[in-house]
């Protein structure tokens, strides 16, 4: 029952963390610039796609999900599916009222 072995503590190099941060900064720039382009239908989709990419970077590297066991991936998946269901089914009312 007692796990105090050190192999449970995975390390990530400082370099990777800084690279991820750089990626996040660049994506922030992209989303700000993209918002100036007038393509109304696509604007939301692009903004959300970039936000999702940024979040997945934060989750995978800063939050170490990439290095965690499968159950952590399942936990996150449960959350995302639940959120999708809640938002999706509510649209059936609001869009068709």
């Amino acid at each position: 029952m007692s796990h105090h072995s050190h192999e449970e503590i995975h390390g990530i190099g400082y370099g990777i963390l800084v690279l991820v941060w750089l990626g996040l900064v660049v994506l922030t720039g992209v989303t700000v610039v993209a918002s100036g382009v007038h393509v109304p239908a696509l604007a939301v989709v692009i903004a959300l796609l970039i936000a999702a990419t940024k979040s997945s970077l934060v989750v995978s590297y800063f939050m170490h999900l990439k290095y965690e066991s499968r159950i952590f991936h399942v936990i996150l998946l449960m959350g995302i599916v639940t959120i999708a269901i809640f938002i999706g089914l509510t649209f059936f009312d609001v869009l068709f009222r």
Partner: peptide, 25 residues
């Protein structure tokens, strides 16, 4: 002797984060 369930503690936190996520949802 130390009893540190590192993974368990983290799992609890992830589950809590899930509730925060739903709160904002």
């Amino acid at each position: 002797e130390e009893h540190h369930d590192f993974v368990g503690a983290k799992m609890g936190m992830w589950l809590f984060l899930l509730t925060e996520l739903i709160l904002f949802t």
